[in-house]
Design a binder for these strands. Structure first.
Length: 539
RNA sequence: GAACCCGUAGCUCAGCUGGUAGAGCAACGGCCUUUUAAGCCGUGGGUCGCAGGUUCGAAUCCUGCCGGGUUCACCA
C-alpha cells in the first residue's frame, strides 16, 4: 500500500493525546518485547474448538464432572482463541473470559502450572482486557458449575492499545452498556465486540438475504449484476449522486435503481433475473433512509402483477419462517403476521375508507380542494399524482401494520408500469405496506415502447417545470423495448426495511453495518461543494 | 433544509437558578490458588464538544459553530 498523506484530521497525535490507559498499554508493548514476546506474532494459531461448541458438548453430565474426576488421559484438550473480556485475578490463580465469534468461554490459569515468572510478570501485568489471546488447555467444570478451560498455555496473539467500553453483567442484566448511538455507529467494530445482540442482528440480516436468494434460485431465476455507474439514471424518481469519469470526460450517476437494466435483460431473452444490490439516492437521511441502501429487484417474463402478489407473499412468508420459525414476527410491542394470503385493497378504495371521500376520477383542482379540506398542504407545483401520493402516505400508509397489498395506482405516479387492463387512469401496480411503511413495489411492466416514450415525455415536462426527481428519457432503454419485451412482472423490495422488521430494529442504522455519518472532525475535503471534481486522486 | 433534545474521566451517568469537578465500573499499586458485576486496602485520571460573550468568577447564563438523537420535509 502506498504511503498516503494523512489529513490533519486523522493524524494520530503523540503521547499527550493519549489517555493514561492508552499510554500504559503502549508501554506494555515495550515490556513484552523486552521479554521476547512479540505482541503481534505472524504465525497462525491453530484453533480446535469454539466457545459455543465447548459449552454444548460439555453439557453432558457424563463428562461434565468437576475437575479431578476426569482422569488426565480422558481429558478433552482444546485450543481456543479470542478476546479477553473479563479478568479476575486472585493471587496465584486467575480466571478470565475470552470471546470468540460464537460466544464466551472462561479460562482458568494457575501460577504453579504456567510458571511463576510468566504468570506474575506477563499474564497478570501485561495482558489486558481487549487483548486477543490463544489458549490451550483442557475442559472442566468449576466448583460453581461453569464450563471452563484449564489453561496449560496462554499466548498473546494481538495486543489491544485501547480499552474497551465493557458493560457489566449480573443475572442477565446489563449495566453500563455501551449504547451511545453516535459512538456505536462510528465505532461499529467496538459495538460488535461488546454488544452481542448487534452481532445477532447482522447474522439475521445475512440469513434473510440468503433465504431470499435461495428462494429465487430455486425457481430458476438468474442473479445478475448491472452497472452502478450509469450515464442516465432511471427506474425511480429520486435525486442521484453525481460523479465524474476523468478519462471519458463526462459525468456519471450512481444508480437510483436497477430497473431499466434488468428489463433490458428480459428483452435479451432471460426469463427471470434478479439483483440484490446497493442503490444510491441523494435525499435526506432519517431512521428510514440511508443514502445507500439495499434493494432487491426481480423481473419475470410472461407474468403479471397478480402472479407477483402471490410470489411476494410466499417469499416473505418463507423469510419469516426461516428467521423466526413462525409467520409471526415481533415488531415493537406488537406482532406482524406474514401468513398468506394478505389483504388486498385497491388504492382508491383504501383512500376512500381512510378519508371518507371518493377520489377516483377527480381533477387536479378537485383533488387539491379535498386535500386542503383534509388538512394536507398542497403546493401549486404538485400534480394530481403527487397530491394523491400525499393523501395516501398521510391517511393510508400509517394505518397498515399487517402486510397489506395496495393495488391499482394512478397512472401519473407510475411511469414504468403498464396501464390497467380494465380501469382507465390506473396502472397494474401494487405495493406491500407493512408496519406503516412501503416495503415492496411491483408492476406489470410497461412493454409498449410508444406508450413508454409518452410517459418519459411527460416526465420530461415535469422536469422542465422544476421537478428534479422526474425521470430522464433513456433512449437506449426505449430502443430495447422497441425490439420487444415480453409481458413481464417486476418487483422491488427494500431489503433494509425488511431487515428492520425481521430483526425488530427501529432505525435503518441498526441494520446497516456502517451507516452514513457526517465526518467526525471539522474540515471535510475542500471543494466538496462541487459535483464536478476532477482532481487526480492518488491511489 | 426546519424544530426540539443531547455532548462532563475509557464506559454509563450525577453536578447546571454561576464560586476553578463527582460516583460506579474500567485503570494503576498491594493482599488473595475455583472466581464470575469476585472481594479487601490504597492511588492516579477530566483545557466539562469547539469558539466567542456576560461576570471579580462559567461545566453551569448568552451567541455562533461542530457532532449526535428524535420529529418533520424529500424519499424507499
Amino acid at each position: 500500500m502506498n504511503e498516503s498523506p494523512h489529513s490533519d484530521a486523522y493524524r494520530p497525535e503523540p503521547e499527550q493525546e493519549l489517555s493514561d490507559q492508552e499510554r500504559r498499554r503502549r508501554e506494555e508493548l515495550v515490556l513484552l518485547r523486552a521479554r521476547g514476546i512479540d505482541p503481534y506474532p505472524a504465525e497462525a494459531f491453530e484453533v480446535s474448538a469454539h466457545a459455543a461448541e465447548i459449552l454444548a458438548r460439555y453439557r453432558d453430565p457424563e463428562t461434565g464432572d468437576a475437575e479431578g474426576q476426569v482422569p488426565p488421559e480422558a481429558r478433552w484438550y482444546v485450543s481456543v482463541a479470542g478476546r479477553i473480556m473479563s479478568q479476575r485475578i486472585m493471587g496465584k490463580a486467575m480466571f478470565f473470559h475470552i470471546q470468540d465469534e460464537t460466544g464466551r468461554i472462561q479460562i482458568y490459569a494457575r501460577r504453579d502450572e504456567l510458571g511463576a515468572e510468566f504468570y506474575d510478570e506477563v499474564l497478570k501485568k501485561l495482558f489486558d482486557i481487549g487483548d486477543i489471546v490463544g489458549v490451550r488447555g483442557w475442559v472442566f467444570r468449576t466448583r460453581t458449575g461453569e464450563i471452563s478451560v484449564h489453561a496449560t498455555e496462554v499466548k498473546l496473539l494481538a495486543k489491544a492499545l485501547r480499552p474497551l467500553p465493557l458493560p457489566k453483567e449480573k443475572d442477565g442484566k446489563i449495566y453500563h452498556a455501551f449504547r451511545d448511538k453516535e459512538q456505536r455507529y462510528r465505532l461499529r467494530y467496538v459495538d460488535l465486540i461488546v454488544n452481542p445482540h448487534v452481532r445477532e442482528v447482522f447474522r439475521k440480516r445475512a440469513r434473510m438475504i440468503r433465504t431470499i436468494r435461495d428462494f429465487l434460485d430455486a425457481r430458476g431465476y438468474l442473479e445478475v449484476e448491472t452497472p452502478v455507474l450509469q450515464p442516465i439514471y432511471g427506474g425511480a424518481t429520486a435525486r442521484p449522486f453525481v460523479t465524474y469519469h476523468n478519462a471519458l470526460d463526462m459525468p456519471l450517476y450512481l444508480r437510483i435503481a436497477d430497473e431499466l437494466y434488468l428489463k433490458r435483460l428480459i428483452v435479451g431473452g432471460f426469463e427471470g433475473v434478479y439483483e440484490i444490490a446497493k442503490d444510491f439516492r441523494n435525499e435526506g437521511m432519517s431512521r428510514f433512509h440511508n443514502p445507500e441502501f439495499t434493494m432487491l429487484e426481480l423481473y419475470v417474463a410472461y407474468k403479471d402483477y397478480y402472479w407477483m402478489m402471490g410470489l411476494v407473499e410466499e417469499m416473505l412468508e418463507t423469510v419469516a419462517l426461516s428467521l423466526h420459525g413462525s409467520t409471526r414476527v415481533p415488531v415493537g410491542d406488537r406482532w406482524i403476521d406474514f401468513r398468506r394470503p394478505w389483504p388486498r385493497v385497491e388504492f382508491f378504495t383504501a383512500l376512500r375508507e381512510a378519508t371518507g371521500r371518493e377520489l377516483y376520477g377527480l381533477s387536479r383542482e378537485e383533488l387539491a380542494r379535498v386535500a386542503r379540506e383534509l388538512g394536507v398542504q398542497v403546493e401549486p407545483s404538485m400534480g394530481a399524482g403527487k397530491i394523491l401520493d400525499e393523501l395516501f402516505s398521510t391517511f393510508v400508509e400509517p394505518a397498515c401494520i399487517q402486510p397489506t397489498i395496495v393495488m391499482d395506482y394512478p397512472l401519473e405516479l407510475s411511469p414504468l408500469a403498464k396501464r390497467h387492463r380494465s380501469k382507465p387512469g390506473l396502472v397494474e401496480r401494487f405495493e406491500v405496506i407493512c408496519n406503516g411503511k412501503e416495503l415492496c413495489n411491483a408492476f406489470s411492466e410497461l412493454n409498449d415502447p410508444i406508450d413508454q416514450r409518452e410517459r418519459f415525455l411527460e416526465q420530461a415536462r415535469l422536469r422542465a417545470q422544476g421537478d428534479e426527481e422526474a425521470m430522464q428519457i433513456d433512449e437506449d432503454f426505449l430502443r430495447a423495448l422497441e425490439y420487444g419485451m415480453p409481458p413481464t412482472a417486476g418487483l422491488g423490495v427494500g431489503i433494509d426495511r425488511l431487515a428492520m422488521i425481521m430483526t425488530n430494529q427501529e432505525s435503518i442504522r441498526d441494520v446497516i453495518l456502517f451507516p452514513h455519518m457526517k465526518p467526525e472532525s471539522a474540515s471535510p475535503p475542500a471543494s466538496a461543494s462541487g459535483q464536478q471534481q476532477d482532481q487526480e486522486v492518488p491511489c
